[in-house]
Computed example of a mutant assay.
Amino acid sequence: MKKIKLIQLALVACIFILSSCSSDDKQPENPKNYVLVHGAWQAPFVWQEVKANLEKQGNKVIVVELPGHGDDHTSPGAITLDVYKQKVIDAISTIDGKVILVGHSLGGMIISSVAETMPSKIEKLVYVAAYLPVSGQTLKELADTDRDSQLGAEGALIFDTTAYTVGVKPELIVNLFIQDGTPEIQNLVVKNYRIEPLIPFINPVTLTEQNFGSVKKVYIKTLQDHVVSPYLQNKMISTGKVDAVYEINTGHSPFLSQPKELSSILTKLAAN
């Protein structure tokens, strides 16, 4: 009798433990390969919490460090959009099977170009507050159409055509990129800020319906964005033949201000 009671108690304990597990820790039935691409004036550090969340669920995740960012000190004059593209292609080439390719901000230009080059390797393109171009467009041309972007305000950007760089006024960094973050996160963004290579902003993309057009596209709108405004996001969604749209109520850097929610969206869109 005592043995039966012990078995019953053990079963109850197991049920309690299983039911108390977070849904975020639930292993996906079909683990995915994610490749995450950061945007301008940022680096791989911005994706680290999202990466950890996705890996906890059994997925494989690669965060690309773009040349001229983070710990990479490639000369800005040697960096083009094609250089960025090749770095992402190299990362994807290390993975067996297809990938969910995620780009933030400037990263949208890069992942679009990658999809044109290797569409058969891309399961989905995911644009997180990202530039979604049509063929022939440059990032600068797209950004110039954003009537509500605070990044486009007079004097916000500092150009150095001799050094091939573009910077942001230091006092504007927090408000532009992470106005909704904690003080600790805001300090992290400021601490890791670096001036940006200029040439990729004026390199056009060439996209075809046969290649780029064949890849499924998902857009994650950031509703409080001061850099790529909701106005421009909606405009790009309407012209970009997007298959699905998700929303997150954050500024330009949801991976820092709401990493858990963004991770949840990335998991959800992978299953749909």
Score class of each variant (00 low, 15 high):
residue 202 I to C: 00
residue 41 W to M: 08
residue 56 K to S: 12
residue 62 I to D: 07
residue 47 W to L: 01
residue 124 K to I: 01
residue 155 G to Y: 08
residue 166 V to W: 10
residue 24 D to I: 01
residue 10 A to E: 13
residue 96 D to A: 14
residue 44 P to K: 04
residue 197 P to C: 09
residue 153 A to C: 00
residue 85 K to D: 00
residue 23 S to C: 10
residue 137 Q to K: 13
residue 237 I to Q: 04
residue 208 T to L: 04
residue 266 L to W: 06
residue 205 V to H: 01
residue 23 S to G: 13
residue 116 E to A: 05
residue 14 C to L: 15
residue 62 I to C: 02
residue 128 V to C: 04
residue 193 Y to V: 01
residue 271 A to N: 13
residue 235 K to P: 05
residue 75 S to M: 08
residue 139 L to W: 12
residue 197 P to G: 03
residue 228 V to H: 01
residue 49 E to Y: 07
residue 169 K to F: 00
residue 185 I to V: 15
residue 242 V to E: 03
residue 134 V to S: 15
residue 43 A to L: 07
residue 40 A to D: 03
residue 106 L to A: 06
residue 133 P to L: 09
residue 246 Y to R: 10
residue 177 F to A: 11
residue 218 V to E: 10
residue 16 F to L: 15
residue 130 A to G: 09
residue 97 G to D: 01
residue 5 K to N: 14
residue 268 K to M: 02
residue 163 A to W: 03
residue 207 L to H: 11
residue 32 K to I: 00
residue 236 M to H: 03
residue 192 N to R: 14
residue 237 I to Y: 00
residue 167 G to F: 08
residue 271 A to P: 03
residue 47 W to F: 04
residue 206 T to E: 08
residue 172 L to C: 03
residue 16 F to Y: 13
residue 260 K to M: 05
residue 215 V to I: 12
residue 67 P to T: 01
residue 129 A to M: 07
residue 173 I to V: 14
residue 40 A to Q: 08
residue 62 I to T: 13
residue 246 Y to I: 04
residue 253 S to Y: 00
residue 170 P to R: 10
residue 167 G to D: 12
residue 137 Q to W: 11
residue 155 G to D: 08
residue 87 K to Y: 07
residue 52 A to C: 00
residue 34 Y to F: 15
residue 112 S to K: 08
residue 151 L to Y: 11
residue 178 I to S: 10
residue 79 I to M: 04
residue 1 M to T: 14
residue 16 F to S: 14
residue 59 N to R: 05
residue 262 L to V: 01
residue 135 S to P: 08
residue 11 L to I: 15
residue 32 K to F: 06
residue 47 W to Q: 05
residue 100 I to F: 09
residue 22 S to N: 14
residue 65 E to T: 15
residue 271 A to K: 13
residue 175 N to F: 07
residue 149 S to Y: 09
residue 143 A to Y: 12
residue 161 T to N: 13
residue 109 M to L: 08
residue 32 K to P: 03
residue 133 P to A: 01
residue 109 M to F: 08
residue 170 P to D: 11
residue 146 D to K: 11
residue 162 T to G: 08
residue 155 G to T: 02
residue 255 F to T: 01
residue 147 R to S: 13
residue 88 V to Q: 03
residue 138 T to Y: 13
residue 140 K to T: 14
residue 68 G to Q: 10
residue 222 T to C: 09
residue 215 V to L: 05
residue 136 G to R: 11
residue 148 D to L: 14
residue 40 A to C: 09
residue 152 G to M: 15
residue 75 S to T: 03
residue 202 I to G: 07
residue 51 K to P: 01
residue 224 Q to M: 03
residue 135 S to E: 11
residue 44 P to F: 06
residue 246 Y to H: 07
residue 220 I to F: 03
residue 130 A to Y: 09
residue 178 I to H: 06
residue 88 V to K: 07
residue 258 Q to N: 07
residue 41 W to I: 07
residue 247 E to I: 04
residue 54 L to M: 09
residue 176 L to R: 07
residue 50 V to F: 02
residue 201 F to P: 06
residue 232 L to M: 10
residue 160 D to N: 15
residue 67 P to M: 08
residue 64 V to H: 09
residue 158 I to P: 00
residue 15 I to G: 10
residue 1 M to N: 15
residue 87 K to T: 07
residue 238 S to R: 13
residue 25 D to F: 13
